[in-house]
Design a protein around this nucleic acid. Structure first.
Lengths: 211, 211
DNA sequence: CTAAAAATAGCACGATCGTTCGTTTATTTA
DNA sequence: TAAATAAACGAACGATCGTGCTATTTTTAG
C-alpha cells in the first residue's frame, strides 16, 4: 500500500467519525483537514471534489458496516441463529464509541433521500443490499424449519428494519438506554409470531431455534 | 394579526417546505429570502438569528403535525379506532405533496440527535409527546377492551414508531411505494397480537374492534 | 544515490454564509 | 391627515466554503 492510500484511509476514518456527528452534508474539508493536521489542498487532492469525498465516506462506512455486522454474522449457522446474530450486531453498530454520532449511514440516508445523485444511489444500493441480506437470512430460517413455511420474509425484513430505526431514534434523540432492549424484545416476539401454530416443527427443532 | 406575524407565517410555510428537502441544517437565509423575494436582512429581522429561524421552523412543523395528525384523530372514539386513525394520519404525513422531502421532523431528529441545544430539546420534547400520545391511545384501547389487558403499551408505541420510520425510509430512499402498505400490514398484525388468546372479550366486541 | 513520480503544502480566487447597520418604505395610531 | 411605529431594504463586514494553481517536500524506482 502506497503512502497515498494509507493517508486516504486515515482521512476516511476520521471523516466517518466526524460525519456520524455532523452528517455527510455537514462534512467540511477545512474542518477535516484541521483535525488531521493536513492542509486543505492536500486533503482535497485525494478526492478531487467535495462530492468525491462524501461518496468515499459513504462507501467507507458501508464497507465498515459489512465488516462489523454482516461478515461476522455469516460465521453463525444458517437460519435463525444467523438472523439473530445479524440483528444483534446491527444494534451494536448504533452505539459504537468510535462513532459518537451514531450510525452515519442512517443519518446519510435521511439527508440524501431526496437529493438525486451518486451519493443517494450508493446509499440506496447499500440499503437494498442489507434488506436483501435480511430477507435471505429469513428465508434460510424458513428452509431450516426455524420459521413457519408461510412467513413473509420481506415483510419481516421491513419490520426488523423498523425496530432498528426506532432504536436508533430513541437512543440518540432521547438518550433512552432501554431502546436497545425494546428492539430486542420486538425482535423476539416478532420471530415468535413466525413460529406460531402453523409451524410444522418437531418440538426439539423448535426449542433449538428459540434457545 | 399585524403585518409582521403575517409574513412571518408566510416565511415559515416556505421554510418548512424547503427544510423537508434540504434539512434544517441545510436551510439558508439567502436561499429562503430569494424564494420569497424578500431581502436577506428583512427576513433575518423576523428571527434574530439563524438558530432562531431553525427553532421557529421546528415549532411550526410540530404544530402542523399536531393539526394534521393528532387533532383529527381525536374525533375518533377512544380506543382502537382512534389509535388506528392516528397511525393512518401519521403515515399520510410522510408523503404530502406540499412537503416534497418527506417529514421534516424525522429529518431534523436525525440531524440534531447529537447536537445539544434548544433545537434538539424541542425535537426531543415533540418526540416524547408523540410517543406518549401513542401509548395513551393504546392504553385507552386496553381500557375499552379492544386490546388484551396485559398489553405493553409503551412497547407497542415503540414498535409503531418503528413501522413509520421504516415506511419513511423505504418510501423516500428507495421510492418503494409499497412501503405504506407494509407499514399498514405491520400495524394490523401487531395489533392482532395484542388481541390474542389472552384477550377477555366477547366475540362481538372483538369483531367491532377489528373491523 | 539519483532521477522520476507522487504527495503535500501554500496561496489566492470567487461565492456564499450569518450578521450588522443605517436608510427607506409601509403600516398603524392619534 | 400627521406623527409614530413597524417592517423591509441595500450595502457591507468578516468568515468560511470548495476549488484551482504553483511550489516544495516526500516517497518510490532504477
Amino acid at each position: 500500500m502506497g503512502k497515498g492510500e494509507q493517508t486516504r484511509a486515515l482521512i476516511l476514518g476520521e471523516a466517518v467519525a466526524l460525519a456520524s456527528q455532523v452528517g455527510i452534508e455537514g462534512l467540511t474539508i477545512g474542518v477535516l483537514a484541521e483535525r488531521l493536521k493536513l492542509s486543505k489542498s492536500g486533503l482535497f487532492a485525494h478526492f478531487g471534489s467535495r462530492e468525491g469525498l462524501q461518496l468515499a465516506v459513504v462507501e467507507a462506512a458501508q464497507e465498515d458496516f459489512v465488516a462489523r455486522a454482516i461478515k461476522p454474522a455469516l460465521t453463525e449457522p444458517r437460519g435463525l441463529p444467523r438472523l439473530r446474530r445479524l440483528f444483534e450486531l446491527w444494534l451494536a453498530n448504533l452505539d459504537l464509541p468510535e462513532r459518537p454520532g451514531g450510525c452515519p449511514l442512517l443519518a446519510a440516508a435521511v439527508e440524501f433521500d431526496d437529493q438525486p445523485g451518486p451519493i443517494r444511489d450508493r446509499l440506496a444500493a447499500g440499503h437494498r443490499h442489507l434488506l436483501a441480506t435480511l430477507a435471505r437470512a429469513s428465508a434460510q430460517a424458513v428452509e431450516c424449519g426455524h420459521l413457519a413455511a408461510d412467513s413473509d420474509t420481506e415483510q419481516l425484513a421491513f419490520e426488523l428494519f423498523g425496530l432498528v430505526l426506532a432504536a436508533h431514534h430513541h437512543l440518540r434523540l432521547l438518550g433512552d438506554t432501554t431502546a436497545l432492549e425494546r428492539a430486542r424484545r420486538g425482535f423476539a416476539e416478532r420471530i415468535e409470531r413466525c413460529q406460531g401454530p402453523a409451524a410444522s416443527l418437531g418440538p426439539a427443532d423448535a426449542a433449538g431455534a428459540i434457545a
